[in-house]
């Protein structure tokens, strides 16, 4: 009988062990803060919004070709204007980034005459990146480090899934921060490497039918030179 009781105790101990304890969520510090008119609470402090930088506009560029015919031609793109620049017309200031295959080049360093620098942020959500970092930007092949946006699966913006689908997928949580040719800050997210921004989840046993080497990106540029990316 003693052992029976013991087994009941053991059993209830097991059941107790099974119920998992929930962690408490930290309260938002802004819940208890009241701000004046024209102010907005940010992380517990009131910030004046009347003199704040203009809100950025998020734009999307669809199907930027990136050496589609595989003859090592780059497509030059200006984030400031959202235009593709003809390779005959490029200058130190009229383009920011260039696409060729999975490589993304900057107008600077070994790839251009401009001053564009960039860095790859990970574990970051595009829409939540509200302030540009002020340090950490490099340009292409600065002191032999390769491209500022590294190539190779898992290193920069994409991962290669391997056979049988051979998919190239943008890495979730990657946001590319740029200081573009006109000195402004810009953020960029790569949505797709395939024409028409298809949902790649449908391809699990064979490569996507949509042609690759077509970038769809979304990006936002702060025009007043400040770090605000809201």
């Amino acid at each position: 009988m003693k052992l029976f009781k013991l087994s009941i105790i053991l059993f209830s101990a097991l059941l107790f062990a099974a119920s998992c304890d929930e962690e408490e969520q930290l309260p938002d510090p802004c819940d208890t803060v009241v701000c004046n008119a024209g102010e907005e609470c940010q992380n517990g402090t009131c910030v004046d919004t009347t003199t704040a930088p203009p809100l950025v506009t998020v734009k999307t560029a669809n199907d930027i070709p990136a050496d589609v015919n595989m003859n090592e031609t780059k497509t030059y793109f200006s984030l400031a204007t959202g235009q593709i620049i003809d390779s005959a017309d490029i200058s130190a200031t009229n383009w920011d980034i260039a696409f060729a295959g999975t490589s993304i080049f900057l107008n600077g360093g070994s790839s251009g005459n401009g001053t564009v620098t960039a860095q790859v942020l990970s574990a970051t959500l595009f829409t939540e990146l509200e302030t540009a970092p002020t340090t950490g930007y490099v340009t292409d092949d600065e002191s032999g480090t390769g491209l500022a946006i590294p190539t190779g699966s898992g290193n920069g913006w994409y991962s290669y899934v391997g056979p049988p689908t051979h998919k190239i997928e943008p890495i979730a949580g990657v946001v590319i921060m740029l200081k573009i040719a006109n000195g402004n800050y810009a953020k960029m997210e790569i949505l797709s490497y395939y024409q028409g921004n298809p949902d790649l989840s449908q391809y699990t046993v064979s490569p996507p039918v949509e042609p690759s080497r077509y970038y769809t990106i979304r990006y936002a540029v702060q025009t007043d030179g400040s770090t605000s990316l809201k």
Binding site: E23, Q25, N197, D199, T216, R218
Partner: peptide, 20 residues
């Protein structure tokens, strides 16, 4: 579980737009 609670998990959602 910890990462989800901390809001650290980002993935590609509809139209390949990333979300938490």
């Amino acid at each position: 579980v910890k990462k989800y609670k901390n809001g650290e998990i980002i993935g590609r959602g509809t139209d390949n737009i990333q979300r938490k």
